[in-house]
Design a protein around this nucleic acid. Structure first.
Lengths: 344, 344
DNA sequence: GAATCTTATTAACACGTGTTAGCAACGCGG
DNA sequence: CCGCGTTGCTAACACGTGTTAATAAGATTC
């Protein structure tokens, strides 16, 4: 590993002071440097292959120019995580556009101690995006109280901490409206998760809102709870098929859960969409390869990452913030599982 | 944002020098500190909620305790990346086990300038794991020449740069052997990518080796080239089906490509595995949900991430390195697309 | 010709830590 | 009383940079 070259060595080679080197290389405005010395400095820097030491720069500026992305996830969950790569792309773009870097950290789901707070406390980063926040995370609340730069990916109900999230209510509304527009009047729903999860409750609320605005009655005998897994979807749908006057369409608030529901329908000898229409949520990569291809609501994964990082950096730089509570819109991806004509 | 507390303030509160604070908090061996002052310092530190500033520490130790993970990937590719989350889990574990942190950076596929080298040059990190290295990357070769700490995820043929990779030859051998063990003698192959890619050439080599050891002749009329996509798999398989004496089994060196191949087979009115057996490579999440579920070779994504980070950190810390060229083994996942009885 | 302004450059400080070399106090053998 | 080892602690340096205040030389003004 070749010795690093410091600004002092560049200064010596160019025959000027280290201060001048700094002024030239940083293009400090207001500092009068003659064109001749400017060139000498630039050449010397190039010749010595000089790169300023970010650590020393952090020391004096007080900024690390780094943000953390803390992901609460078990290794098991990782296998089924279809969106992380896109989220990371979004973050990476936003981050490098501002000259920042991204520190990535995974913490176990059960962690409550706020291990990740070391990132801020020891000043490895200027702020963090926290994915999967827990409402019982005392460290988190205290840190936000003290003005730490934190943006949530997801929400904690009741807490006014800046966040970026999907507009789940709206997404569910769009999906349900689609089913209604296809003349369905008995529309079932299977949630993506227990209602303790904000996203789950919101998607249920969106479903109800769509029924309301169409003048359809909400019938809770048509609603079942999923819990992330295919299995839960299978059971829920199996159950829905046994009631008399079974629904002619179902909105399943998670593609993974919908996968199970689809199997239950087909195992019962029924056809999708002829006998039952089904609409999912998330648009996982697999959705378009299902048989039939699944109509679903697209999760704006890239946008989530981008918006979260951008908001956080605005906070760090004290830039103007229009709205610290960002809800991203969704889009319906029409395929053939609802019987609608495919849109190009 | 509350003012940070420095070691000096802790020292003042405890009534000792800053040096003593440093000795106590770092448990410096050989330094005699009386139990009484030790306690005073610890209490003061706790009371003031002191956390040492990593930047200042970096300054004096010369180590950043960070490694970079540079991923060469376009946003389009991200959607089809099924392994990144697992790779990151592996890295994250290895990294935090050694008290390091991970800096994540994405660069566009066409980048040749070595933008990512800024991570090392400006000393943001102590070393990097580079995914998707290009053999025409001049910056990379020069940096390695100069002794930079770099580990490749993947290989550059002919260059002796430390790397971690899947044992593609072995994986392909295992897959082909499986087909042979099911009494197939005319076994076709569709590669995952053009042969310029090491992984692709190696998987082809493994396929040939398995044929060899079974005494089966290599017949290049049974081999087609894929290029990552489903479409390429569809075309390749469609083509294979037209030759006389079509193969009774096919090894497709990528699950995604196999997806297309499967469609081609089924569109031709043939049954899998009755008419043609098919074995994939990668074990993407979707594989087990295909119809029929796809027998395939599991890519050790978690292990790749772990091993790469671990090797890099060993290099950084000058620890003993048994072998800087790591090839990870694979495992066959038997499902029903080859007609073998499923293993539990 | 003295006073003032402009131009080009630099000396010196600050950031917060790890660490080496050294200092004062004390006990103990002679 | 002197010399010496031990114990407990600290002063001072180093790390590489950004930035403020100051300096010297030359140009301009009155």
């Amino acid at each position: 590993m070749g010795k690093r070259t410091s600004a002092a060595e560049v200064a010596e080679l160019a025959g000027v002071s280290r201060t001048t080197v700094s002024f030239v290389l940083n293009n400090v405005p207001g500092m009068r440097i003659s064109e001749e010395t400017r060139q000498r400095v630039l050449q010397a820097a190039q010749l010595l292959n000089y790169h300023p030491d970010s650590t020393a720069r952090r020391m004096v500026t007080g900024q690390t120019k780094m943000i953390g992305f803390v992901l609460r996830q078990s290794p098991d969950q990782a296998f089924g995580d279809h969106f992380l790569p896109q989220v990371l792309h979004g973050m990476s773009h936003a981050v490098s556009a501002q000259g920042f870097h991204l520190v990535f950290e995974i913490i176990p789901p059960e962690d409550q101690g706020g291990v990740y707070m070391k990132l801020i406390n020891e000043r490895h980063v200027d702020g963090i995006v926290l994915s999967g926040p827990r409402s019982d995370d005392a460290e988190l609340l205290r840190a936000c109280e003290q003005g730490a730069n934190i943006v949530l990916a997801g929400q904690i109900p009741g807490q006014k901490i800046p966040y970026v999230d999907v507009n789940n209510i709206d997404g569910a509304k769009i999906a349900t409206r689609h089913l209604i527009s296809l003349s369905h009047t008995r529309i079932g729903m299977i949630t993506n998760a227990p209602l303790a999860y904000t996203a789950s409750a919101d998607r249920l609320a969106g479903y109800r809102a769509a029924l309301d605005e169409a003048g359809l009655a909400y019938d809770e005998t048509l609603v079942r709870l999923g819990d992330f897994t295919m299995d839960s979807g299978y059971k829920a749908m199996d159950d829905l098929l046994t009631i008399d006057q079974r629904p002619s369409a179902v909105f399943v608030a998670s593609d993974t859960v919908a996968l199970g529901a689809l199997q239950a329908i087909q195992n019962a000898g029924l056809q999708v969409p002829q006998d039952i229409a089904i609409c999912g949520f998330d648009d996982i990569p697999l959705a378009k390869f299902l048989n039939p291809p699944l109509t679903t609501v697209q999760l704006p994964a890239y946008g989530l990452g981008w918006a979260a990082a951008d908001l956080l950096i605005r906070m760090i730089l004290n830039k103007e913030i229009i709205n610290p509570y960002v809800l991203l819109g969704t889009e319906l991806v029409v395929r053939s599982s609802c019987g609608a004509p495919e849109r190009p």
